[in-house]
Write a protein that binds this DNA or RNA. Structure first.
Lengths: 207, 207
DNA sequence: TGATTTTCCCTTTTTGTTCGCCCACAATAG
DNA sequence: CTATTGTGGGCGAACAAAAAGGGAAAATCA
């Protein structure tokens, strides 16, 4: 069952309040928030929203409104339309945010090279000096060849897969350089190294 | 049953409105949107669309139009390329890739908290010890309050915006801690600090 | 006891429905 | 070739019902 304009406003207010405060508003607070003079009106709205199963509440229990999954499904979906996010400016240490002129946006599509992109989760700190940390997820592009200095996923001697910087050395040797001063580079004949992917992006999530 | 040109216009307008606002338009609003002077005309269109089962509505109920799956099937774009990438495994220093069991995927939607997310580009190395580098782009969520240890964008004394770790100190003071041993923390009264956003994610792109 | 929710009954506003009538165009029958 | 008929699209006004809002008081929980 569809919502009317006002009903959606009420629902959104409750959702917003819940999000802000972690507990649900009293009818009094809803009335203030929506400029209503009578609790009867609030009560009526809540009742309708309950019959339409956008929320539920305990009878006569104060602050007992809970949103039903229906609301989240219909209205909280993280904008599937375009994976774009406004890019508001640049932030520097101790300097104000430089505003960015036009409405610039950050688009996730820019982080994906072509269709042949895959992801890995990083374990360990072998690339920590390049600021790639344990738990980070990396996007890689399947390539056969790498250029000097690229960060690649390489299969060494058919058994061992590592994330390293790639350099060609003299005499057909290849050096796979970790970015961690406590680890030693691997130097092997080029024919023993198979490049599986080249680093495109690093994604790190905070909780 | 096929639609006429005008009928499709009406249907598209309703779909667009629904998408924008989360609730359906009144006949009045449809009339304005399509430059019609009479609600009777709108009513007639809706009735036709209902018999052709592109939508349904409740009798005498305001804002009760719902689109039927038929419309979505016929006219809705075929999924805007889900921003998903296969997550193939975990890679560790010098160890083979641990295969991941099922077809797990990395979804960009996971990096966006809610609708209220914005991005900034990082300048400088004030957070380098937290592995946030010059040129990285960060996703932030608008929040009013921060918890101890959160990385936040804070406006200090109304003039200076910085990316720092946030800690509450004694006597109502707040410490904004850079992650760079060469920089000193900022300690100011809590009332001089306005939190503008909390760090959700770091994105780094390689060329 | 105080904060909250529920209920009764009423008014106002918003919205949907209906009826008669109009025009333009295309297909069809005379 | 013309007259007739059907259909999509449109208009305005009168009317009816749902939605929304209100005041006050009773009921309930903590």
């Amino acid at each position: 069952m569809a919502l009317t304009k006002r009903q959606k406003q009420v629902l959104d207010f409750i959702a917003g309040f819940l999000n802000e405060n972690g507990y649900c508003p009293s009818y009094e607070e809803i009335a203030r928030g929506l400029d209503l003079a009578s609790l009867a009106t609030v009560h009526k709205h809540i009742s309708v929203l309950e019959t339409k199963s956008y929320l539920k509440r305990g009878f006569n229990q104060s602050r007992s409104i809970e949103l039903m999954p229906k609301y989240l499904q219909e209205y909280q979906r993280p904008r599937p339309a375009a994976m774009e996010i406004p890019l508001l400016g640049r932030i520097a240490a101790g300097a104000p945010v430089e505003a960015i002129e036009q409405r610039e946006t950050l688009n996730f599509a820019d982080y994906v090279g072509n269709a042949d992109t895959f992801a890995l989760e990083v374990r360990g700190n072998s690339m920590i000096d390049d600021h790639i940390c344990d738990g980070d997820r990396i996007l890689l592009e399947h390539v056969a060849e790498a250029r000097d200095g690229d960060i690649v996923v390489a299969l060494v001697a058919g058994s061992e897969t590592t994330l390293k910087r790639f350099y060609r050395e003299a005499d057909g040797m290849v050096r796979l350089q970790p970015a961690n001063s406590t680890l030693k580079p691997i130097v092997v004949p080029a024919r023993d190294v198979q490049i599986q992917g080249r680093l495109l992006a690093v994604l790190r999530k905070y909780k």
